[in-house]
């Protein structure tokens, strides 16, 4: 995957700014979700994608509208890149009646067949075989789409990971799997999840490409993913991309991550994906203070709008209809 940088040549200034917009939007969205949790307005588990912006945005940006996205719990920004709107996401996180799941499930656990987004279930790894199935359907119908799926480094130890990759590599399915190596799986540090040098080496066992990248560099993420996407589109089969980042918050909102050394967080804070990218854009003269303010103001008002909208939206009213588990043919 050394040729990937050619994909950067095709990016326009507008694209560069879009990446910046989506990364900043993701961070603001995550902040407001955390606030809603602290105010008791979102109940249950709230998982933050802080630190994961470059990975979620750069990867989803490599997709076309006909491609499929199977995001995980720290990939909120990928939903936005794929076209999901803030109001819908807010309704979904707040368990409202008009959310995609009508309150039956929360967080990113929804599906939007039109945007081709299929959210995760909690069971780690369980979506990889399903993503492989969508990839199978693409091949079956001779279409050109691809499927992008994510898994944490911890979740990559679940058996489904292996079965899905064995399955899709042999069938050469158009599947790209990003292993988000953010150093911790809940409280468990990465060295207790593998003694291998890197997670991408697993690809060797399946005979597919595997690469480890800096997950805080949105352009590297984008270009490497784009290459894997194009490869899959050409019928060459799946790839694994290990994106190395840091989980900058606790496992969930209730967890203060006391087990993460402060120095480790400090080290990663120097590589904040958004700040890094911002200074690059300043250097390239694509971004300046006034454009930056314009973008951030736009995000603030979009978030405010979504919050107002979703907080005023009704909670679901229980009815038998809402509990149907079968589609009835008429």
């Amino acid at each position: 995957m050394q040729t990937s940088s050619i994909y950067l040549q095709n990016l326009t200034d507008k694209d560069y700014l879009k990446l910046y917009y989506f990364m900043s939007l993701m961070r603001q969205f995550e902040n407001s979700i955390l606030n809603l949790y602290r105010q008791g307005r979102i109940v249950g588990g709230v998982y933050s994608g802080m630190g994961n912006e470059a990975t979620a945005i750069g990867s989803a940006f490599a997709l076309d509208s006909n491609d499929y996205l199977f995001p995980m719990h720290r990939d909120s920004g990928a939903h936005f890149v794929k076209g999901q709107n803030l109001r819908t996401m807010m309704l979904q996180y707040l368990g409202r009646a008009d959310s995609p799941t009508k309150g039956r499930d929360g967080s990113g656990h929804y599906a939007d067949p039109i945007l081709r987004i299929y959210g995760n279930i909690s069971h780690l790894g369980a979506m990889i075989p399903v993503a492989a199935g969508v990839a199978l359907a693409i091949k079956y119908r001779n279409e050109k789409s691809v499927v992008l799926n994510y898994i944490g480094e911890g979740g990559s130890n679940v058996g489904d990971f292996h079965e899905a990759l064995a399955f899709s590599s042999v069938l050469k399915l158009p599947l790209i799997l990003i292993i988000e190596n953010n150093q911790y799986a809940y409280s468990t540090p990465v060295y207790k999840q593998t003694i291998a040098r890197q997670f991408s080496d697993r690809a060797i066992g399946y005979g597919i490409p595997g690469v480890t990248i800096d997950g805080t560099d949105v352009l590297e993420v984008y270009s490497v993913c784009k290459e894997a996407v194009e490869r899959a589109r050409r019928g060459k089969g799946p790839s694994i991309i290990e994106s190395v980042t840091m989980r900058m918050q606790g496992h969930a909102a209730y967890d203060d991550a006391w087990y993460v050394p402060k120095s480790e967080l400090e080290k990663w804070r120097q590589k904040d994906p958004i700040e890094r990218y911002e200074s690059l854009l300043f250097d390239k003269k694509i971004l300046n203070e006034s454009i930056k303010n314009e973008i951030l103001n736009k995000i603030n008002s979009e978030i405010q709008d979504a919050l107002n909208f979703a907080l005023n939206a009704p909670l679901p009213k229980p009815s038998e209809d809402l509990f149907k588990v079968f589609l009835e043919k008429d």
Binding site: G44, G95, G103, R104, L315, P318, K324
Partner: peptide, 16 residues
């Protein structure tokens, strides 16, 4: 409980 998965939103869970 109702013959369904456990729903997320509190009013639904209470009903369930």
């Amino acid at each position: 409980a109702l013959d369904a998965p456990v729903p997320y939103s509190p009013p639904l869970e209470d009903y369930f």
